[in-house]
Amino acid sequence: MAGQTVNFKLNGEEIRAAAGWTIWQAARAAGVFIPTLCHHEALHPFGACRLCVVEVEKDGKKTLEAACSYPAAEGLSVETETPRVQKSRKMTAALLLARCPSVPLIRELAARLGVAEDSLPLKGRAEEACILCGRCVRVCREAIGKRAVSFAYRGPQRRVSAPFGEEAPDCIGCTACVFVCPTGAVKAVRQDNRLRLSPWQTELPLLSCSACGRSFAAEKVLRHLHGLQKASFDPETLCPVCRRKQVGEALEKVSKLGKAGSFPPGKEQKQFKH
C-alpha cells in the first residue's frame, strides 16, 4: 500500500490522497475544512457526532457519509457544502445545542450554522456538557491502553462513566481524557496534593517533586510510564520543570568545560521560573 495514491474529486477539484486516508484527512491536506467534534487525529475514526457528513457520489448514487471514517477512494466525487450537507449539519448542531444548551463551543458552532436558540422542543439539563463523542473513552483505550472508563447504558441513557458510576480503579490519572474532551465535560482539579477527575468520581494522590516539593503528577502515571520504558520506578522523581533545570545545569557544566556556546544564566533562570 505504501506510496499508493488515489484520485478523487473534492468540491469539483481533482485531488490526490494517500491510499488508506479518509475523506476528512484528504480534505484537510487539501486545505478544505470539515467540522467535526468526535474525531481526533490520535484516535481511530468513530463516526458518532455526524457533523462531518459530506455528500459522496459513487456509481451515480449520492449519499451523505461521515468524512471522518469514509475512505477516500478512486473515482469518488465529494461535496462538502451542498444544501443537503448544510441542512443535515445544521440539524445535528441544533440537536447538540438542545442537549447541551450552555456549552460555549456548541453555542458558537450552532450560532455559526444559523441555528436558532429554541429550534427544538426537548431541552437538556443546563449543566449537561457531554456530547458523547467518546474521545475520553477512546483515548483511554487506544492511546493509554487502560480502559479505565467506558460508555454505559444505551440510547437516551447512554453516558460516559467509570465502572458503577464510582471511582475508576484502573484510572492512572494521566488526564488524557481531559485533554481530548472538546466541551470541557471531563475535568481535572488539582488540590491538596490530590488529583480529582470528574465525571469519573476518581481521586488520586499526586507525587511531589523531590527537588521543589510541588505535587506534579499522579504516582500511577509515573509507574505506568516507567513500565513502558521498562525502567524501575523511582519515587524520588523530579517534576518536569526541575528535571529540565537539572538537564540545563548539566549542559551548562559541559559547555563551561568545553568551548561551545553557553546559556546566558540570567535568561535560563527566567525561562525555568515556576
Binding site: K146, R147, A148, V149, S150, F151, A152, Y153, R154, S161, A162, P163, F164, A168, P169, D170
Partner: peptide, 18 residues
C-alpha cells in the same frame, strides 16, 4: 478484563440486572 468493559456490557444488554 477491564472492569469498565464488563460494566459497559452489564448496562448495555437488557438481559442483565445490576
Amino acid at each position: 478484563t477491564p472492569l469498565s468493559q464488563l460494566y459497559a456490557m452489564a448496562t448495555f444488554y437488557k438481559s442483565f440486572n445490576l
